[in-house]
Simulated scan of single mutants.
Amino acid sequence: MINLYRIAFAVLVTIAGMGPVTAKPVSPLDVFYTVRAEDLAGAPGTLIRLAPIDILSVYRAKAYRILYVSRNLKGEKIGVSGMMVVSTLPGRGATRPVVAWAHATTGIAHKCAPSRRSDPLAIPGIKDMIAGGYTVVATDYPGLGTPGPVPYLIGLGEAQSVLDSVKAIRSLPEAQAGDAFVLWGHSQGGHAVLFAASLAKTYAADLKLLGVAAAAPATNLAALLHADVNTIPGRILAAMTLLSWSRNFGFPLDGLLTEDTVEVMEHIDKTCIDSLSGKLDALSAEQDLGAKYLNYDPGSRQPWRGLLADNNPFYGLITVPAFIAQGADDTLVRPEVTTGFVDSLCRSDKSVRYVTMPRVDHGAIADKSAAQAVAWMDERFRGVRAVNSCPR
């Protein structure tokens, strides 16, 4: 195992030998997220390093930061960070069930990685999963924590990082991880796990996916863009999406954005929204984004129209049971959009448990539905036949 403090000391010695510099001192945490060429020698899904997280909010569990090999959209190997929580309660055998968590939007800046937060374990249902003896792995996604553009609402980039996180922990004695796993995500993370479910059979053939659970997943992106374009949060998320797609695919934003929009987008690009203060900062920056912050509807022209279609989760490739939760008061991921996706799953003869919760908004749906989601996951691990709420 790599000694982070030794690496940090070596880096500081190297800097000291170069003469006076104005750079900030290198911390062990910064060193942890540093990806060198030699770190990428292994195949995607190879663990690079891990480090314990000393945190008091977790009872009867151990937590770790992890860094592992994955792929970017070009197929090149990259480093991706995340975290792992392992229950210390007795398991059900030689190995533990694994849940792969995919987080909701935190931003598209390098500093917005959940594993960098002061409390990185704010995973809905984590206490129930610890009580169940699970191992939970949670990717940051590429570009959050580690270098590179963030594949925000780009299904392939998100899905690969989720599945590779499950592969990475299997080599760890600390994880006690079996090959059976369930996917669980919220909002952007719901989008990620639905894509991961559709990719798992080919990308992670050595693993056994038992089900996918998603709270308010982003599905029909064009419909959500149209529905949310007149709301402050909707325009912020649209700005993040367009910036991410432009960076990842090389399509210029010239012509699509008004001149006033560019400066505001640059501010949003540096703002994390995983905390209340971050949300307020982003909302303050967005006040300059008027209703005419785009020169035209991205869904009306290429390449944006094609990207919106290509990054809709495809229900036809999901072969495992699904649990979908939706808040009735969600004004960001609209209930009618999620219901439309569930209807598509049902028409394709999938097993779906669809839970709608009155008076629950977008931010609360993952926490509110977590107990039901974990109970549903537990049934998958115990081999109970999934109850299908699709109309016969």
Rank of each mutant, 00 (worst) to 15 (best):
G327T: 09
D269H: 14
I66A: 00
A227V: 00
Q302W: 09
P120S: 08
Y5G: 08
I123V: 15
K279T: 13
M18Y: 13
K111A: 15
D164Q: 08
W376V: 05
Q188L: 10
G278T: 10
N312M: 13
S115N: 11
P52H: 05
F32M: 10
N230Y: 11
W245L: 08
A8I: 10
T339D: 09
L67C: 09
L345F: 07
L172Q: 07
A8Q: 15
V352L: 04
S57D: 14
A43G: 06
D206W: 07
V182Q: 04
T95D: 13
G45V: 07
D254C: 02
I232M: 12
I236H: 03
W101D: 02
D54N: 12
V150L: 07
A41M: 11
G155D: 05
Y315W: 12
V387T: 13
D281G: 13
I365G: 04
D349P: 00
P142Q: 15
H362P: 11
P90C: 03
R170A: 05
K368G: 04
S198I: 01
D361C: 06
A282E: 09
D361R: 12
N72M: 01
K208I: 09
G278R: 05
D297C: 01
E266L: 12
V162W: 02
G157Q: 07
R392N: 10
G340P: 01
S171K: 13
V166M: 01
A325L: 04
N230K: 11
A63S: 15
S198P: 05
L67F: 06
K77F: 03
I365Y: 03
V320K: 04
D39C: 02
F381A: 07
W304R: 03
R380Q: 14
V35W: 09
V69D: 00
A328E: 14
L144W: 04
L40F: 09
G383K: 08
T95M: 12
C390E: 05
I318T: 10
L194R: 02
A168M: 07
V212S: 03
A159F: 02
G306V: 00
R392H: 10
A196W: 05
R117P: 09
E174Y: 05
A113H: 05
Q160Y: 14
P25A: 03
V384H: 12
D349R: 13
P28A: 07
D164L: 01
R170I: 06
V320E: 08
C390Y: 03
D378P: 08
R385I: 10
V384C: 06
A61H: 09
Q287F: 10
S348M: 08
G17V: 08
E379K: 15
A204Q: 05
C112L: 04
G299D: 00
V333P: 08
A375D: 15
M265H: 05
G155C: 08
V99G: 02
F195A: 11
S171N: 11
A168G: 08
S369P: 09
I232L: 14
V387S: 12
N3S: 14
V13M: 14
I273A: 02
N230W: 04
A291V: 09
A371T: 15
A239E: 06
R382A: 15
I126G: 01
S198A: 15
H267P: 00
